[in-house]
């Protein structure tokens, strides 16, 4: 059969797509009397049944999954690349500077946020208060962050059951407290963006 761009039609003039779209419904008056439609419908119903069987079988078939080696290779590359993120200095000792990776800090901030019921932390960016504002969705800055001058921007989804102003205030306090306790960093500014509400 030629694979031209026009929709294939049955002898009665109907397009195959229309027969397929109505395959889950009882046959129409036309379909009950039209031999072309009856034949097409029976053929498509059979195809749909075998396709469904193949789809369900393939999904549960361990032979049709990539090996663990592939997964390990992907994660190894991902972890190696993420480790190259910026670092935030925490303090200086006689043996050198202690710092924390930006990824570790954003992980801690997401953790702090998730300790509040009804809060799902999404993206977090870290910058100095003197750096230009960047969107959490935008490309990360490459400049080093001054540990004395940290501003974070955190986007969250909130449960539709919580009061937004009170939760945002609590969230700001919780993030500031946990980050200060775990790293010694006192954040100068914590911007919270509520970008979504979810139903419980």
């Amino acid at each position: 059969m030629a694979m031209n761009e026009g929709q294939p039609r049955l002898g009665c003039g109907r397009i195959i797509d229309d027969v397929w779209e109505s395959i889950d419904r009882p046959a129409s008056i036309h379909e009950r009397t039209c031999r072309d439609c009856q034949s097409a419908r029976a053929a498509l119903e059979h195809l749909e049944a075998v396709t469904r069987s193949m789809r369900d079988r393939d999904r549960s078939d361990p032979a049709l999954r990539p090996s663990r080696r592939v997964r390990a290779a992907i994660l190894m590359v991902a972890r190696a690349e993420i480790r190259r993120s910026r670092r935030v200095p925490l303090g200086t000792t006689p043996r050198g500077t202690i710092d924390i990776s930006e990824q570790a800090l954003t992980g801690l901030i997401r953790f702090a946020a998730s300790t509040l019921p009804g809060v799902r932390a999404r993206r977090c960016t870290i910058a100095g208060t003197r750096e230009p504002q960047t969107s959490p969705a935008g490309p990360p800055s490459t400049a080093a962050v001054d540990g004395e001058d940290v501003r974070i921007t955190l986007t969250v989804a909130l449960s539709s059951q919580v009061r937004i102003p009170a939760t945002v205030t609590l969230l700001r306090e919780r993030v500031g407290t946990i980050v200060q306790a775990q790293t010694g960093i006192t954040m100068q500014q914590i911007d919270i963006g509520v970008e979504d509400l979810y139903d419980v």
């Binding site: 480790r83 670092r87 050198g96 710092d99 990824q103 570790a104 992980g107 801690l108 998730s114």
Partner: peptide, 19 residues
């Protein structure tokens, strides 16, 4: 001369699993 602190924290199961 720098000492990394909690480099793996974001992916550390103990951190996220607890939350």
């Amino acid at each position: 001369s720098r000492t990394a602190l909690a480099t793996e924290a974001p992916g550390h199961p103990a951190v996220l699993a607890s939350a």
